[in-house]
């Protein structure tokens, strides 16, 4: 049974006013338990709008969102449940921090779930561990941390609810390359440890291609492509037309293949490509 299924999902902002805009239209997507999905699209293609439907923050203008086969908008109770089972980390989540201490901020979600003190403590420590926050920052104010650390606190605040689906909206936006890499590593670690479904939103191919099992490409409010990274990247021209590039290493690999070299097309990073080329030469390193 798929964890998440959307049927003809459409959302229109400010409908009935001169400012009305159709953000997504007729989106049909099925995401199974445990999948790692990368959601890619140009700015304004409707990614954020789409993911806010998954935990019931936005209500569809038409169509429906099914979680384990039930429409989450059919009752208040189901919607509240979806809030906790689908954890959503917003874009620039550090702007939502508000508590006096890091510990209290991470505990905000679990506290809203009405868990016991013991349980909350356990979850806060576990979540902080997943994002690599040392216990020494627990008693500091979240506002005085560095940008990267603030973001970790915000992500931990959602992970602490132990959602079975974790959705992250551009979690690496505005971070330096090191910060990017380590946050993406935290996310894969979390997936490996818990088996949660992950939906990672990004406008950059380089980020998600390496770690996602499946890519869904949004364009102009609807799904333009849906498949494994290999399948999606083989449509380079089409991707170019909708303003998305493929990772440089992949492009190089594809060109080499055109020239008759046997490198696999599934190279997404320079080091993967390097290894592939080395192994082609019989493992002899130079």
């Amino acid at each position: 049974m798929p964890t998440i299924k959307t049927q003809a999902l459409t959302h229109i902002y400010s409908s009935g006013t001169p400012f009305k805009s159709v953000a997504i239209s007729n989106v049909n997507v099925e995401i199974a338990q445990g999948e790692f999905v990368g959601l890619i699209g140009h700015t304004g293609s409707g990614k954020s709008t789409f993911v806010q439907h998954l935990n019931g923050l936005l209500e569809p203008s038409s169509g429906s969102v099914l979680l384990d086969g039930v429409d989450i908008n059919s009752s208040k109770r189901l919607k509240a449940q979806a809030r906790f089972s689908v954890g959503l980390v917003f874009q620039y989540p550090e702007y939502q921090l508000f508590e006096e201490t890091v510990y209290k901020d991470i505990a905000f979600g679990p506290k809203n779930m009405k868990l016991g003190k013991q349980e909350i403590d356990e979850r806060v420590r576990e979540a902080a561990g997943f994002v690599g926050l040392p216990e020494s920052v627990f008693e500091r104010s979240p506002l005085e941390l560095s940008g990267g650390q603030k973001r970790r606190v915000a992500i931990a605040g959602v992970i602490a609810m132990r959602p079975s689906v974790l959705v992250l909206d551009e979690p690496t936006a505005g971070l330096d390359p090191d910060g990017c890499r380590s946050i993406l590593k935290n996310i894969t670690d979390y997936r490996d440890a818990t088996g949660a479904t992950i939906i990672l939103v990004s406008h950059s191919m380089e980020d998600v291609a390496r770690i996602a099992d499946r890519l869904i490409v949004f364009h102009g409010g609807s799904v333009a492509m849906d498949g494994t990274p290999g399948e999606v990247f083989s449509r380079t021209e089409e991707l170019g037309r909708i303003g998305l590039g493929i990772p440089l290493a992949t492009e190089l690999a594809l060109r080499l293949r055109e020239l008759g070299t046997q490198v696999p097309a599934s190279c997404y990073t320079v080091s993967q490509l390097y290894d592939a080329i080395i192994s082609l030469r019989g493992g002899a390193s130079c």
Partner: peptide, 15 residues
Amino acid sequence: EADKIMNAQKARGAD
């Protein structure tokens, strides 16, 4: 901005 923050807190179960 208020709308965004409100949504972010709702995603953490704020009521």
